[in-house]
Design a protein around this nucleic acid. Structure first.
Lengths: 197, 197
DNA sequence: ACCTGAACACCGTTCAAGT
DNA sequence: ACCTGAACACCGTTCAAGT
């Protein structure tokens, strides 16, 4: 049976996408160090150097895997954001998505943030940051959150989410998560600070 | 001139300490991937495999480097803690130490936390965590911080410090840091939450 | 364009052996 | 005890070459 229209047997119509997908599977199954240019080629049935036709080097492959992760992650966060209108509920839902992602997809998560964070303060770019900013802004309008630069407050929220997910590595200590969300909520709610603009 | 008392020229009386120190220099100068069992041996004038006499494998060397880092880090944090008695000033001082360390010694910082965080929720062990807990506890006694499990609140503080230092990688955006400290302070100060115990 | 194979300069780690 | 040297099974990357 003839599988492809091509006469030659170049092994893939879309090797690039296959490399990203298989690289991702590889790191989730066996850890980041297991991702090898040679190994990923072997698994896909192409030569050890085929990946270089699509990626400048290993770092570029990893960066692409990280970006692919963010696309999915953003969708999940978007869902959490839309699951409620009230600020506290939104924050809870978004934090749950964040922590679960970090816990269940450790390796991918690490690759995602390595890709995101290299080369300066790139964290405030991208949809996730925009979402957090919007949630903050809307909550300020409804009076649920105190005044202050939404971008700055969004960074604080992100930082706490990220820090908790780092320190909480693989355990699912809901006490910690609840505590963190509480502190954050009161911190954003309070009015006793010098912030007045 | 005779340098050592030894007749043989084993190159070091204390190769172990030299490996840790030189490994540390290496990662700070050239990044973590530059730390190689072979390279560190070469730099110290011993064979490529000499390190295995003192460390089971590369991971063990890295872990030792990380631990050595924590010893210094703890000293710096201790200094910050003792620089003030009032809660807000203490938190500011400790956060400055944390952020500066993360900024100025990136590679070492990364190695430290890789070592600390592997194998479960190890973060709540060790002097740094104990210090944070103590600061919180004292501030609760003086009425500066609301009630609640000091261990839990200390974790939240650590998580925010850590998250900020991650997201803020190499820039020194004091706005972000100030904002974060403010949110944290009001979060710990507030009383409007369900926390009543 | 897309892919291969050989080649180069590296790795971590093991192990028999030396002092 | 502490260290060496050879050896093994890997890497990332380059490059001339094939279709």
């Amino acid at each position: 049976m003839k599988l492809k229209k091509r006469k030659t047997n170049y092994h893939h119509g879309n090797l690039r996408a296959a490399l990203i997908q298989d690289g991702l599977d590889l790191i989730e199954e066996k850890g980041i160090p297991a991702l090898t240019m040679r190994e990923v080629g072997k698994r896909l049935g192409v030569s050890r150097t085929a990946a270089y036709a699509h990626f400048k080097d290993k770092a570029a492959l990893l960066a692409a895997i990280g970006q692919a992760g963010f696309v999915e992650f953003e969708k999940a966060m978007e869902g959490a954001k839309n699951s409620a209108v009230n600020f506290a509920a939104r924050m809870d839902a978004m934090s749950v998505v964040y922590f679960n992602w970090a816990r269940e997809r450790r390796a991918h998560f690490e690759v995602m943030f390595n890709a995101l964070l290299q080369g300066g303060a790139a964290a405030e770019t991208g949809p996730v940051f925009a979402m957090l900013k919007e949630v903050i802004r809307e909550a300020q309008q409804s009076g649920e959150v105190r005044q202050g630069d939404p971008a700055l407050l969004a960074r604080v929220v992100w930082a706490l989410f990220h820090g908790v997910s780092m320190l909480d590595r693989d355990s699912a200590e809901s006490h910690f998560v609840r505590s963190s969300n509480e502190v954050l909520r009161s911190g954003l709610n309070a009015h006793g600070t010098s912030e007045r603009t």
